[in-house]
Design a protein around this nucleic acid. Structure first.
Length: 879
DNA sequence: CGATCCCGCCACATT
DNA sequence: AATGTGGCGGGATCG
């Protein structure tokens, strides 16, 4: 190598201008020659070598393999030249190339030539998109690297992404197996499902896909493994499986990121994902501290991934022009529907046929998972609970169960909303100044909460109580609740949680509450855009009396452990990136309307829709009564979702009025608690509605049978993107205790109840603002009008119930978090998913957490305690 | 000047 | 220890 380098180095400069480029460029026209020659001329060195050539030589000398490569190279060369023209379709790159051509004269090697995207195209050109199933093509990294004239490192970048999509799998050291796109649709489908689900267990599915491969290889190591311990990364499971051994270790964040990134597209209605949003979503750990650098790094990685995906023709670069600015974004141009998006699960895999085994395989994974869970969970009731299994089965048997679908939709909606909101918000908020001020309050909460202890104790109890499935979170929470306990729970039952909701709660370090309405104008000020409507509403809300109750409750809640840090840091952090976020969150106050208004743009519209959807979703959960019946939930939820779906699409801007009305009503101002995922947890955020009505009970009955959850969990990513979350919470309708509503909701351990109800504050990850009071959302009752929106009714109810209040309780929020975690753990099977989700999103690298997560899975029961711990840890650690 | 993202150091894993 | 992998981010280039 050294030698090689030398030769290369010296001449290098000149060399750079490789002719190669030229040829490519011409993509359009073959004339490459003209161009090429020119370059050559430029460069001092005699032609003979291009860097590549040197490499070849070296390679050949080095090993026999290399020789082979050389051969290939030869092949390759031609390919390059001709190929480029061939592959023009590939993308913009071609275009670029053309332009380059001119430039290249200069001789610039130009970066473009070396771009990862181009390199990837070359790489892909070497292999058939749809290789015969029978033949396997092995890829030697060295070979490819030499052929393409790049360092191996670059090949890893490509291969890692391809591997995430299962286009290749790692066979052995330096050896990858080319699979082509046969399974691509399936993989995408899987990713979509996973994404929709929130990235839960679904991952497993993937595994089976690759099973074939594995078998081939004979590696099934993973299978054995794994329980949580073996592999730290859950996420990976799928990919890993395929390749097998490899992943064991740590990272592979690139692969995970790639999958997540793809998932974002798949769950996005618009199919457009902006880089910054993606980065935020993918940043698990913490946005906080490091943020900026981290964000930057993430973006860099995303570019790497995007280049590969672009080369694959799955996405293309676009710019999202929002009112103010235009952001770089990528649009999914690959297949969208696979089999199952929303429809049916099974139909899928158009292309995938090839793998007979897949289906079966799929099943298998599930089973496996189940088992694993059981273990972890063990005794515990929840997890193991039948419901879960049932679900799973469904899944296994049918990839997309209706249930899932709903969830998916929900998720996607959320995501979309988040994205949209975020964008909007950002724009709006752009004014940083504004944002910060917003409502974020720091939550002192930490201090307060007592949760910790409770939860643990509680847990056990809970289990017994409810095995309910519906929401793990909720469930767990209830269980957890020590204090609240019975009363609240009972009413609804833990079930309060939304069955539908796909989301899980995670503990994150920081919590923030959002207040739908700030008492004061803060909101207004802060949010200009939304402002108008928002303000009014806000005011109205504000007017609403916040319940004093909350306060007290909140106090109760004070977060125990973790909590503390979050706040401050958060605030600080906020300044940076997050500031946006918070704002966004805030915005939501008036969610719909504002959104709509904003939405004027296309995006805006969508957002509005999303929002609605959102509401709906939320609403669904609401039904408290229903909650009792766990079983019922699913159905209900489904229905609800459907509704929501229906709606969503429709509402374009025109609908505004309705919407607005609804919104107004619904808008509840929702106060949500947002829990930020702390480090590592990136996965979900929770939102709790601050206000719940105690009285809420009534609602539920109607359509929303199911849940009355006070909390909504949003995928962290979503949150990130969104600013708002609205949850209508609900409370337990019956709950004996008004305040309790929250508690009910809260099934979480926390004492949330208090908080929830009252606090208007929004907790944002970053900064905390002071709490404002929230207003009463209750404003109107228009909502009812729209049935479609589930929420509205709910809201209304809730409102009634709601009380509000007070100021903030920071601590509370914290508490919640903890609860959540625990809950999650203990939870039902669903919980499991969540866990995975988390893992999924998280990057491996970021933390040690993974382990913890694993644990969660494993020990659901205990989790409570463990969870809490984790939470605490996380919270603390973040800093 | 911000958006892209190449390059390769370096740490960790595996052999 | 050597080699394989791949995170990561400086800083160059592009637009």
């Amino acid at each position: 190598e050294n030698i090689f380098d030398r030769s290369r180095m010296a001449p290098k400069t000149p060399i750079k201008n490789e002719p190669v480029d030229l040829s490519k460029q011409k993509g359009c026209t073959p004339e490459r020659n003209p161009i090429t020659p020119v370059k050559l001329i430029d460069r001092p060195q005699p032609d003979p070598w291009t860097p590549t050539a040197n490499l070849k030589m070296l390679v050949s000398a080095a090993s026999p393999d290399m020789r082979d490569r050389e051969k290939k190279k030869e092949l390759f060369r031609p390919i390059e030249n001709s190929e480029q023209s061939d592959t023009p379709d590939s993308l913009q790159y071609d275009m670029v190339d053309d332009s380059t051509v001119d430039e290249f004269e200069k001789q610039r090697p130009s970066r473009k030539q070396k771009s990862l995207g181009l390199l990837c195209q070359k790489f892909l050109a070497r292999y058939p998109s749809y290789p015969l199933s029978t033949e396997k093509t092995t890829i030697s990294l060295d070979e490819v690297a030499s052929i393409l004239g790049v360092e191996r490192r670059r090949i890893y970048d490509i291969v890692n992404v391809l591997e995430s999509l299962h286009l290749v799998s790692r066979v052995a050291k330096n050896q990858y197996c080319w699979h082509g796109r046969h399974n691509l649709s399936q993989t995408l489908k899987t990713l979509q499902e996973a994404g929709e689900l929130q990235y839960g267990e679904l991952m497993t599915f993937f595994q089976h896909k690759e099973q074939d491969l594995e078998h081939k290889f004979g590696e099934r190591k993973k299978e054995t493994i794994p329980d949580s311990q073996d592999r730290p990364l859950l996420d990976f499971s799928e990919p890993d499986c395929t390749s097998a051994s490899a992943n064991s270790r740590k990272d592979k964040s690139l692969r995970i990121m790639s999958q997540k990134f793809v998932m974002l597209f798949l769950v996005s209605k618009t199919k457009i994902v902006t880089l910054d949003i993606a980065a935020k979503i993918l940043i698990e750990e913490t946005q906080d501290t490091v943020d900026h650098s981290k964000f930057k790094t993430k973006v860099r990685r995303l570019y790497d991934i995007a280049n590969v995906l672009t080369s694959l023709g799955l996405i293309k670069k676009v710019h999202v022009t929002e009112e103010r600015g235009r952001k770089p974004a990528f649009k999914w141009i690959g297949p969208v529907e696979f089999p199952g998006k929303t429809d049916e699960p099974r139909g899928h895999s158009p292309t995938s046929d090839p793998l007979p085994g897949t289906q079966s395989g799929a099943c298998a994974p599930y089973q496996i998972c189940a088992t694993g869970k059981q273990r972890f969970t063990r005794h515990t009731s929840f997890n193991g609970t039948q419901p879960c299994e049932g679900t799973r089965r469904k899944v296994s048997s049918e990839p997309n169960s209706p249930h899932q679908e709903r969830q998916d939709e929900y998720c996607s909606k959320m995501i979309n909303l988040a994205a949209v909101c975020r964008q909007k918000i950002e724009e709006d908020t752009r004014n940083p100044s504004i944002t910060s001020p917003l409502s974020l309050l720091p939550v002192p909460g930490d201090s307060d909460f007592c949760v910790n202890p409770l939860p643990q104790a509680v847990f056990p109890v809970v289990q017994t109580d409810v095995p309910s499935l519906s929401l793990p979170n909720g469930i767990s929470g209830q269980a957890l609740h020590p204090s609240i306990p019975a009363a609240s729970k009972t009413e609804n039952g833990k079930p309060a949680l939304l069955p539908n909701q796909p989301f899980l709660c995670f503990p994150s370090s920081s919590l923030f509450m959002l207040c739908g309405g700030l008492q004061e104008n803060n909101l207004r000020e802060t949010l200009p855009t939304t402002g108008d409507v928002g303000n009014r509403r806000a005011e109205a809300q504000a007017t609403v009396p916040p319940a004093a109750c909350q306060k007290r409750s909140s106090h109760k809640c004070a977060s125990p452990s973790a909590p503390v840090d979050d706040e401050e840091p958060a605030a600080k952090k906020q300044t940076m990136e997050q500031s946006d976020v918070p704002l966004s969150l805030v915005v939501p106050k008036k969610p719909f309307e504002s959104l709509k208004a904003e939405s004027t743009a296309g995006s805006g519209c969508t957002s509005a829709e999303h929002l609605e959807a959102f509401h709906l979703d939320l609403a669904s959960p609401a039904a408290p009564e229903a909650a009792d019946k766990e079983s019922t939930k699913p159905l209900e939820s489904q229905e609800q979702e459907k509704w929501s779906q229906n709606k969503d699409p429709d509402e374009p801007s025109p609908g505004k009025e309705h919407i607005s009305k609804e919104n107004a009503n619904q808008p509840f101002l929702p106060q949500y608690l947002y829990v930020q995922p702390t480090a590592g947890l990136s996965s979900f955020n929770f939102l709790f509605s601050a206000n719940q009505a105690p009285g809420a009970i009534s609602l539920a009955a109607s359509q929303l049978p199911s849940l009355s959850l006070p909390c909504v969990v949003v995928p962290s990513a979503a949150l990130a993107s969104f600013p708002l979350v609205c949850s209508p919470t609900i409370t337990s309708p019956l709950s004996p205790v008004p305040d309790g509503s929250f508690s009910a909701a809260a099934s979480m351990n926390f004492s949330m109840s208090g908080l929830a109800s009252t606090t208007p504050v929004f907790i944002g990850t970053t900064a905390v603002v002071t709490p404002k009071v929230s207003p009463a959302p209750s404003v109107d009752p228009q909502q009812p009008a729209h049935p479609p929106l589930h929420l509205s009714p709910v809201l209304a109810r809730s409102r009634g119930a709601v009380k509000r209040d007070s100021p903030v309780c920071m601590g509370h929020s914290v508490t919640l978090l903890k609860l959540q975690q625990p809950s999650s753990t203990p939870l039902t099977p669903k919980s499991i998913r969540p866990a995975r989700h988390e893992a999924f999103f998280k990057t491996p690298g970021s933390l040690g957490d993974p382990v913890a997560w694993k644990k969660n899975e494993g020990n659901q029961n205990r989790n409570a305690s463990s969870v809490q711990r984790r939470l605490e840890i996380s919270s603390t650690s973040p800093d």
